[in-house]
């Protein structure tokens, strides 16, 4: 297994690139007109997970984007998936 140093040597630039892209994405959304969006809220809600000390951040981020409802519709009310749970299917909302 590689050391921490070796993983950083391999992937730090890529991680830095992804973080700057995310920062620029948030700036870009802010600069453009329009209202609130559940996807942006979901993205911002996931950000503090990155700063936690836990060892399963990827799992918890994925869970934070997941539909946690328990109801089963007979047929799909809409098709496609957007990556974050639409407010109508969020429990307790």
């Amino acid at each position: 297994m590689p050391s921490k140093q070796e993983i950083l040597d391999l992937q730090f630039i890529d991680a830095r690139h992804m973080l700057i892209n995310l920062a620029a994405f948030l700036d870009r959304v802010d600069r453009h007109h329009g209202g609130d969006d559940y996807r942006l809220e979901a993205l911002k809600a996931a950000l503090p997970i990155l700063l936690s000390d836990r060892s399963d951040r990827a799992k918890v981020v994925l869970e934070s984007f997941s539909d946690l409802s328990t109801d089963l519709p007979q047929t799909a009310p809409f098709q496609g998936a957007s990556g974050a749970t639409r407010p109508t299917t969020t429990p307790h909302s």
């Binding site: 869970e63 539909d67 328990t70 998936a81 957007s82």
Partner: peptide, 13 residues
């Protein structure tokens, strides 16, 4: 298993 936000619920089902 389903895509994106539907995957966790679908996997359990």
């Amino acid at each position: 298993t389903p895509h994106l936000e539907d995957k966790l619920k679908g996997t359990h089902l």
